[in-house]
Every structure is written in C-alpha cells, then in structure tokens.
Write a protein that binds this DNA or RNA. Structure first.
Length: 106
DNA sequence: CAGTTGACGGCCC
DNA sequence: GGGGCCGCCAACT
C-alpha cells in the first residue's frame, strides 16, 4: 500500500518529537526524497489537519519560520516552539541544538 | 495535456 | 552575513 507523497510527508511531520524542529529538507528526506523540500512546503500549506500535523515544528534549514503560517502567524509558531523548550536566537531557532535527530528511518 | 506555482535547498556574488 | 539565481518535484489551473 503505497501512500501518496503528501501522506508520507504528513506522517513524517507527525513523528517530530516535542522540543525539536525539523527543516523542510529534513522532512522531505525522511519522507523519501530530500528534493521534495518544495513539495513539503506545499503539503504543509494545504495542511488538511493542523491539529494532528505540527507544522509549526517544521522550519527552514536556517531555523527561520514561515509568515503564512496555518495557525495564524509565524510569530505564533515561535511561541509554540518556545513553549516546548525550543530556544530562539535573533528570531530564528538554534537549529544546531534543536534540529530533530531522526534516529530511525525505515 | 502543458504551463505555472510554491511554507525550499544549495551555490554564487 | 545577506541577497539573488537556479534546480527539484508534485500539485494546481
């Protein structure tokens, strides 16, 4: 049973632990192809289930968040991440310390 | 079916 | 470090 590209991306995002963030490229790589960075952005853009898909834990490789955030605003995303213990620096996540360590990968 | 778009990533200046 | 260009793939019109 092969899942669609979007479903695979959503599945990966759902697996992101609290207090951690993953870059679009990271999610894309875990979903199957790291070149899906654009596709990941698009997938989260449609975000069919914002309550089940913590898209706020997904940031750019620089730790920068998106303005067009599904929850109401990019600033909102930062607040949510800070609430989970993620520290920010100059408006961006310290990726070096908080980027998801993807231990698995089937 | 073909062209455009997009919440990106990497490389260059 | 910041800004710009190209490339990548799937979804949308």
């Amino acid at each position: 049973m092969e899942k669609n590209t979007f479903e695979r991306i959503y599945d990966v995002v759902k697996q992101i632990p609290e207090g951690r963030v993953a870059s679009y490229g990271q999610v894309a790589a875990l979903a199957g192809n790291k070149r899906w960075a654009r596709v990941v952005g698009y997938a989260l853009h449609v975000n069919p289930d914002p309550e089940g898909i913590p898209c706020y834990r997904v940031v750019t490789k620089e730790g920068n968040v998106s303005e067009a955030f599904a929850f109401g605003g990019g600033n909102r995303q930062i607040e949510l991440l800070k609430a989970e213990g993620v520290c920010f620096e100059n408006g961006h996540v310290i990726m070096s310390e908080y980027q998801w360590e993807t231990p698995w990968i089937d």
